[in-house]
Simulated scan of single mutants.
Amino acid sequence: MSTLTQAESSFSSTSPLDMTRTMPPNITGFEERMRRALENVANQSDLAFLVQRHRFFGSEHERSSVANWLARRLGDTPEIARTLITGGTQNALMILLRSLVGSGGVLATEKFTYAAIGQLGRLLGIEVVGIELDDDGIIPESFEAACQRDNVVGLYCNPTCHNPTTSIMSTERRRALAEIARRFDVTIFEDDVHGALTDEAPPPLATFAPDRTWYIMSTSKLIGMGLRAAFVVGPSVEAVVDIQKKLPSVSAWFVPGVSTVMVADLIDSGDADIFASKIRAEVAARHALVRSIIQPIELVHAHHSSLHIWVDLPARWTIETFVEAAGAEGITVRNPAVFATAGFEITRNIRLSLVAPKSQDDLSWGLGRINRLLRS
């Protein structure tokens, strides 16, 4: 391996460059607008109530704002009674999976999937089975085989800018999965966290299987993880009422009141859409850096809207040796084992966040080091 110059090693000599987490990148005007949103919270006439009491699933106005905003993805505006604002995707999934899959039940998911799914399965006593993937996402025949073999109760999936492979499931594939889920009476938990940021994303699975899909979108990639806010749309008013009755006062289910006011304010003012537009532009610029630095570019799997890339490692590398070598170069990367479901192993890929580095210059520095490792 070549030796870095003093200027090049600025990250490794102070703190490593993080390329693990995906969150909204820095965009102009963000802090100013968030300060105004916080001022609007402070000016609420019911500020004491807002801080001292549960907001539960948001006020009727806040849920209406969210429902109208989600209509852009769902095609139609969901009823307010089907729309909940919750305390984040993980909290919502914990309660949905506990209630609708249950201890001893079987949850199918992509063989490589959101790292929290395996953890939630172990916590709730749910068996998680992996489904084969290709460049178009879940393979329908693999899903159908699992339904026949394993008595699958639920399907968790991330069909738009899939984590970690970045694939975007086609409309035809979504329609096929919806038909299989209906035939085997499987409940779908659709995580559309990247839906608002992805150019020309196909319609959600919820539009093909509205009778059995719990649709989830979060503010974590659009605004920030700190709000602890996610949006859940149930398949029917009755289904939403039923699950609320089962767990009426579990506080992890509820969104912080301050967050609901801010979310509605950002949606109503149009700032949420401005954030999305600016993030798309920033992410596109970061993908342009990838294309100009990583060689051969064929090693990279990516969609121009994805917040991360999925990189094929040359045969001379193992996951462990690459993670160690990146660390020696001053770059923190995550072992991708966290994304693999039981029985599957990731041996030739690394996920790299394009948005954890604070600036394009920082990202360029990191990509240069990564490229040198890939070519060494």
Rank of each mutant, 00 (worst) to 15 (best):
E8D: 07
L177G: 00
G224K: 02
L354M: 11
V311K: 07
P24Q: 02
R291Y: 11
L123R: 13
I293H: 01
A326R: 01
G75D: 06
Q244I: 12
L367G: 03
A284N: 12
E190F: 05
R183I: 06
T165S: 14
V290E: 04
I297N: 05
N163L: 15
G368L: 06
R369H: 10
G58P: 02
R375V: 08
I293P: 00
E179N: 07
R73A: 11
C161G: 09
V51N: 04
W69P: 00
E172V: 08
T86F: 10
S364L: 07
A284K: 13
E132V: 10
V233S: 01
I279D: 05
T166G: 00
E62Q: 15
A71C: 14
T14G: 09
T77F: 11
E200P: 02
A239V: 09
S249M: 09
A196L: 12
F339N: 02
E32G: 08
F254I: 10
S251I: 13
S218K: 12
G368S: 04
A229D: 01
H303L: 02
R375A: 01
D361N: 09
S2V: 14
F143N: 00
A285T: 10
L247G: 00
R351L: 14
A284H: 12
I319P: 00
S292F: 02
P159W: 03
D361T: 13
F57W: 09
T109A: 11
L84G: 01
P336F: 10
I85F: 04
T109G: 03
P25V: 12
G88R: 05
R375C: 04
I188Y: 01
G104P: 02
E31H: 07
S353F: 11
A201C: 01
H162Y: 06
C161I: 14
E282N: 13
L374G: 11
L299R: 15
D271V: 13
W214D: 02
S292P: 01
R334C: 06
K111L: 15
K278I: 05
I223F: 11
A178G: 06
V261N: 01
R372A: 15
Q244E: 12
S142D: 04
L363C: 08
V41Q: 08
A315I: 15
S15H: 13
L100W: 03
E110H: 14
W365D: 15
L120T: 03
V129E: 01
N158W: 12
V240Q: 04
G270C: 06
I293D: 00
A206N: 05
G118R: 09
